[in-house]
Design a protein around this nucleic acid. Sequence first.
DNA 1: TAGATTGTTAATCGATTAACAATC
DNA 2: TAGATTGTTAATCGATTAACAATC
Lengths: 221, 221
Amino acid sequence: MSKNKLRKIAKLPSIRRMPQYLHIAKRLHKEGQEVVSTTFLAKELGVEPIVARKDLEITNVVGQSGIGYKIIDLIDSVETFLGWNNNSDAFLVGVGAMGSALLKFNGFENYGINILAGFDISHNILGIDINGRKVFHIDSLPNLARRMKVNIGILCVPEENAQEVADMMIRGGIRAIWNFTPTKLTVPDNVVVQREVLASGLAVLSVKLGKLFAEEKESGC
Amino acid sequence: MSKNKLRKIAKLPSIRRMPQYLHIAKRLHKEGQEVVSTTFLAKELGVEPIVARKDLEITNVVGQSGIGYKIIDLIDSVETFLGWNNNSDAFLVGVGAMGSALLKFNGFENYGINILAGFDISHNILGIDINGRKVFHIDSLPNLARRMKVNIGILCVPEENAQEVADMMIRGGIRAIWNFTPTKLTVPDNVVVQREVLASGLAVLSVKLGKLFAEEKESGC
DNA sequence: TAGATTGTTAATCGATTAACAATC
DNA sequence: TAGATTGTTAATCGATTAACAATC
């Protein structure tokens, strides 16, 4: 495997906005609309129109001057760009608070993945059914993942077990790990990881609020 | 209120990494360590050392050449920067899958907030206790928020009710909304919003995985 | 002294924004 | 025709990276 500088992804901010364009486009499609402009999309997202224009550019969707984009084209282009036109199967490990919230969430079918089952170690939840998904013992994960050719793993275990469970996923042939733990995982070159840090959003919110209060205090004097 | 260009926050990527530095520093502190270098922090985060150095710079923490930072100084500086040295009270609305996962999560005390209670409309969950927090009817939110001077609202309701519930929060004097819905909220100038889009991380993961497969296919020929 | 690290200035890179012709 | 919008090129801005003196 070559130098893993290759693994660096460009236009991260644009990619992060894609699901929102998709969500709006699907809503409009359901409402019977046929075209949409970046002006409209941008307003819905709370960004400048030029941002939406540039974002859509990277999906290679083509629109019509003066009109906008055909919604079905837009949906198709964004889904293709993200590789969401064929949903990938996923296993979720760690059926605690966050894990079961994700299992209960039904929207993932719109986000390119299809969670097949949950895995845990606690006897209390083994064998139960959450939203149509069985919870299995984690020891069965590597074999099941191989057998079912599951590519995506969702990691919701306690911090202490994160690396160990990630290793089991990798042993099962999983190639992409959506990591909800605060642990930086060590993985081989042929596995990708995306860490989800909820506290990041909270940090941004806190700084915004602090700034707001500071401004008010200032102008109040 | 002045032009809300002022609301634009600089160094967003650095701010988003702050909770991770804090988390590592607290862990080391518990382990009895007294100093830490940006070299170490960077490795734990999976970023380049220069990144960590620049990040910490904006908190105004001072270190010692050749040694690193005193961990207690680091914790204090990051917490002060984020305004997390005094936890803010928060109300959470929408005790569904995501809402109850957040209520069950105990780590928020380390992330500057203190969730006091949950709110919902469904009779099944009214009055129940989740992790020591009562669930009240949403109609009581504005008054309670005012009375208890709650500044932060966590919005986990269905998309259709997002704006309506945000308006109730604002009526209650809430100034910062952590928005887990896909809705772009309309709020007055004296309220800040941070939207949390879980699907963004999934989009990035999908693009990374697609790139990985494409590279393998390429080198496999 | 040698190695590690901070603090800071400068260089590079990429993302955002502006501008505008072409099109409907 | 006038207004709206795409597609594209150029300009600006901010974030990342490099470099290095000063310090322990």
